[in-house]
Amino acid sequence: MTGLAIAVTLALAVSVIADSKKTLAGLKKGAKMFLNILPALLTVLILVSVFLYAMPAPILTVWLGKGTGWAGVFSAALLGSISLIPGFIAFPLGAILVRSGVSYQVIAVFITTLMMVGILTLPLEAKYFGWKVSILRNTLSFFGALLIGLLMGIFL
């Protein structure tokens, strides 16, 4: 994040020195795009907040920890696909699961689906790619993530 802030500051400085009019036009375009997507974005954040309340990290841990074999993999895939948990919560959660004896396969499936599939963010994705393509991308990613997780279970 600090890296991003530094990069943006540098880019802005270079841009202003090179052509301040062009810079202003670019900033205006960026701001307009941001404001256009803001209502949809905030709505998705509300959905995610309600979901995280209904399914907080300790409960997730219990659910993921209980499942064994295929049922465990399947529930991990489902939970990972629906949840939108930022990395700073998901990875420590994964570490806790490892220590409490949950199989690497289940953890890997949860992490990969969490990254690649976003059911709660579908309304936002559809605004850019359309519903059909968004659903298709998420479906393909779901099976892809499942495959990655299962492969990791073999190697870890």
Binding site: L4, V8, G26, L27, G30, F34, V48, L52, P86
Partner: peptide, 24 residues
């Protein structure tokens, strides 16, 4: 929860859109 997600969004997205505007 909303406030936490909002902060995550607010820390990154405005910067991203500045870059997107400059890129454009």
């Amino acid at each position: 929860n909303f406030f936490m997600f909002f902060l995550e969004m607010a820390a990154i997205l405005p910067l991203m859109f500045i870059l997107i505007g400059l890129f454009e």
